[in-house]
Simulated assay, not measured.
Amino acid sequence: MTVSVKICGLSEPQSLHAAVSGGARYVGFVFYPASPRYVSPAMAAELARLVPTGVRTVGLFVDPDDDFLEHVVSQVPFDLIQLHGKETPRRIAEVKAAFSIPVMKAIKVGGPEDLAHALEVAEVADRLLFDAKPPAKVTALPGGNGIAFDWTLLAGRRWPRPWMLSGGLKADNVAEAVATTGAEALDVSSGVEDRPGHKDPALVRAFLDTVAGL
């Protein structure tokens, strides 16, 4: 089984190069100003020009309005929009209709009850992303908190849309994560950082090498 990887929260050429040269199939840019991984549309546009053919670009947004989406999408070419907030199925459909770009919706998983929402979302989203529910504290981000959820919740499950696994993934636990969930696509951010918001090229390569060896 080939497992594809998305390196999310890229903000500089060195880490982008490490991602694409190491075999990442997706690269993600975060347009959520409160995140340490936030990148301006102008910088993201420069980075996107370095992405080779065959690697998909992903824009991560948190409850964006159409004006903000238009502001970013008009500058940066995306293959996929990732919605990581509290967007409803109706809002997902609106974004798809307005921008004609496939949408991946994050499902925040804390327990089995959260997976029921995934089926509703799958009726409109093109992809699903299962991430850990943020901790209940004011400083918690919608994603990228470096925590995992109970992977056994996904064991043996099948979904009507392609999906990615996210949340607390690192080189030293990714084999267990894939074995438990059967994930064929992974999304990593904080697990390849040496400090919040800064990707370490060596950690990026180590994660990609580990996944390639699965």
Rank of each mutant, 00 (worst) to 15 (best):
A116R: 13
R90L: 12
G54M: 10
V55P: 08
T53V: 12
S74C: 13
D126T: 07
P102G: 10
L69S: 07
R91M: 02
P89T: 13
V58R: 03
V109T: 12
H117E: 15
H84V: 07
I81W: 03
P102Q: 12
Q82I: 03
A125F: 08
D67W: 02
R56Y: 13
A98L: 13
D79Y: 07
D66W: 00
R127A: 12
V121D: 04
Q82P: 03
P134S: 11
I101S: 01
V58S: 03
V55T: 11
D65T: 00
A132N: 08
D66Y: 00
V73M: 11
S74Q: 14
K86C: 07
M104K: 04
F99C: 00
D66R: 00
D66I: 02
L80A: 08
V103M: 12
D131V: 11
A93Y: 04
I107W: 05
F61C: 01
E120R: 12
G54W: 09
G110R: 10
L129P: 12
K96N: 00
G111P: 05
E113S: 15
V58E: 04
P102L: 11
L83T: 04
A140F: 08
G110M: 05
M104P: 01
A106D: 11
A132Y: 09
A116I: 06
V72G: 01
K108V: 03
H71P: 00
E70D: 13
I92S: 07
A122S: 15
P134R: 08
P77A: 05
H84G: 14
V109F: 12
A116E: 15
L115P: 10
V138L: 14
F99K: 02
V62T: 07
T53G: 13
D63Q: 05
L83N: 08
P64D: 10
A118E: 11
P134E: 09
L141T: 06
V95E: 02
E87M: 14
P77S: 05
F130Y: 09
D126F: 09
T53C: 10
V72I: 12
L115R: 09
Q75C: 02
R90E: 15
L83K: 07
K105P: 04
K137W: 04
